[in-house]
Amino acid sequence: MSGGLPLIIGLPLVAAVLLVVLGALERRHSPAAGPGFFQRNGVAVGLYLALAVGFWAFFIIVLPQLAMVDMSFRPKLPPSQMGGPKDVFTLENYRYFLFGSTTSTASWNILHIKAFFLTIGVSILVTLLNFAISYPLAFHMAQSAPVARLRVLLLLLIIPYWVNEILRAFAFRVLLSSGGVVNKLLLGSGLTSEPIDFLAADVGLYMGLSYAYLLMMIFPLYNAIESLDKNQIEAARDLGAPWWHIHAFVVMPHAKPGIASGCTLVFMLCAGALAAPLVLGGPRTLWFTPIVYDRFYQAFNWPQGAAYALILLLTCIVFVLAVLRLFRLSLGEITR
């Protein structure tokens, strides 16, 4: 890793120092400068904030990701050869994702590419499903539920999330497997003559994924809808609007930032989910995250795993930004 490590640590540090200097310059030349950061917060608190946030941003977020980027461009080598003459930057890992092993005869790496698009596609579907489930509930909670019922609903929503994610995934498996509760009920009531293989049909996967990130959707929606003036809904109704029109043209435009932030969260988490696809995925379904996992821990090819993870991350970011742009939303708005 000659030059690699200094580069990884050095570059962001240089960038950070540059930003601070630029900020100081701008402050000196701007006409209406308020009290400085340290004047407002005091030296002790200011120093703590700067160091803590700096450490958090740098060591926990930027550094590991940069290490991943660096690794993804390197060949897989035994430790003894790392930093040796063979340790050069290469696009091999990205090439592998598209075209597979150099010894394979197929022209494209169909297996991985298919898993990749399946992951993105199903994540979109799960996000939409999640929105469809969450919106009515969030609307009820935000606009029409009495306080007492709101409390009960919030508790009912939150308490299940005290259960571990993997445990919840297995619970769905128990529920939906061929000999599971649902099939026993169906057989017992005579609705079907033989058990339905929900897991092979990926019903379990969709349910598990939708359920796992329900709160990520409900809370941003709830927050956004709650800030809507009730009179607006009544005004629309008074002007003759049917209920669906009110939702489509009054409530949803108002809640757009909340909808965007909920959908972004669910989509990102869904595309990166590991437990639910591993536990609930059907035998014919190959999700992308388990492939990434396998690169690291089965193939012991960390550089390739890093490249795969980055491909997923970048695609998701680009996709989300494109959708936000489509709905004329800025990143700043969804954090409101």
């Binding site: 009179n231 005004a235 109704r237 008074d238």
Partner: peptide, 17 residues
């Protein structure tokens, strides 16, 4: 319902969209 009555209401806070 209010959406089917021949009345129109102007709210105290106007409730413009």
């Amino acid at each position: 319902g209010p959406n089917r009555r021949p009345t129109a209401l102007i709210f105290q806070n106007l409730a413009l969209f």
